[in-house]
Amino acid sequence: MRHFGTLPDGSPVEAVTIRGGGATAVVLTQGARLQDFRLADVAHPLILGSPDLTAYLGPMRFFGAIVGPVANRIAGGRFMLNDRAFALERNEAGKTTLHGGETGFSQQNWNVSAVAPDAVSLQYIRPDGTGGFPGTLDVRARYSLDQSGCLTLEITAQTDAPTPFAPAFHGYWDLSGQGDLGAHRLHVHADTYLPVDGDQIPTGRVAPVAETPFDYRRPRELDPALDHNFCIATEQGPLRPVCQLSTSSLSLDVESTEIGLQVHAGGSLDTRPFPGHDGKPYGPGAGIALEPQFWPDTPNHPTFPNATLLPGATYRQITRFSARTG
């Protein structure tokens, strides 16, 4: 564990490096984020990141972080639960709550609870009412590398009051190391997706991908404007294939227990003036976010799968990222 930087409130941010199966991952306590991920036989990092902590307080606030307590958007920054209205921080154009608001998980400095050569565990206790969300949450995240270099992220949580809970990992991937997704192809294991309105809020329809620009059931080139949720299932289950990202020389297979996959092709990225791993800012299309999660705005759609975490229950999400050459 090494010192990475200091937050404005004086809190130290630590970086933990883990290794396994020829892969190396660097995890920061700030945001419980994956700051770097590399394979031994590949010269460049596979995930976008920065050596500058300040970047993660600005344009790179979601890069590699665990976002939540509810990933993606909540319409109007409000929802009803058990006949009670809750008002949240609206951090997107004053309209929506994005990734938990200004005090979401990505902006919290988590505590390291355990470290091993191939794994690191972190914990964050979210007080009741933070960002407008009910319930005190005990959230834990564990990154680990196995003997094949596969990276597994496990997120668990418990609460003392009913609360919406649907976190996600928000890393931006670039398998080419060129800051350009033009050579990438995407394959998503989904027959349906969620259409959205002008504020990127689901309309409530679950639509087939067939004969639409959202049909990635066979590998194909990326639409740079893509920013939609694909419906993988209607309930959490065992690990199952979610998607594959590939170039001519590398591939990344994603498996998850989650029911949705938000794909953001990075069309709006602009990290100026902060540098990325290569010393230059990232621009549009520099990386793609593949975010296993619940369906967006679930608290406001009774017909969507229920994302309410109850006292006495344990939430568990597992996602595996398997990168390989060839």
Rank of each mutant, 00 (worst) to 15 (best):
G76L: 10
L7E: 13
G179Y: 11
E14G: 03
G287E: 08
P238L: 08
S106C: 13
F37E: 12
G312E: 12
V188A: 07
Y143M: 06
E154L: 11
G68H: 00
H187A: 05
G266D: 12
D223H: 07
T103N: 11
H3R: 14
L137H: 01
Q236Y: 04
Q108D: 01
V196M: 09
T319F: 00
P59I: 06
L181R: 07
R33T: 02
Y282W: 05
R90Y: 08
I18P: 11
F133H: 05
V120Q: 03
S322V: 09
L151H: 06
H184Q: 09
F169D: 06
S248L: 09
P162Q: 12
G20N: 11
N306H: 08
L186S: 03
H189G: 00
D197R: 02
F105N: 06
R217W: 01
V27I: 15
S148V: 09
A40R: 14
T29L: 00
L222D: 11
G22F: 00
E14S: 13
I201M: 04
H44S: 05
L181F: 10
A157V: 00
V242Q: 01
P299R: 02
A75L: 03
Q244C: 14
M80T: 15
S121E: 15
L309C: 08
T319N: 01
I288F: 05
M80Q: 13
R240N: 05
R240H: 10
P45L: 03
R240F: 01
P127L: 07
T54G: 05
T271C: 12
G279M: 05
G64W: 04
L34P: 09
D52L: 14
R78H: 03
R320L: 03
Y143H: 10
G100C: 06
P238D: 15
V16T: 15
Q262W: 01
Q158K: 14
L98V: 07
L250T: 07
P202H: 06
L226S: 07
E14F: 11
G283C: 01
G177I: 09
T271E: 10
G101K: 01
D297S: 06
Y172C: 11
R217Y: 00
Q262I: 08
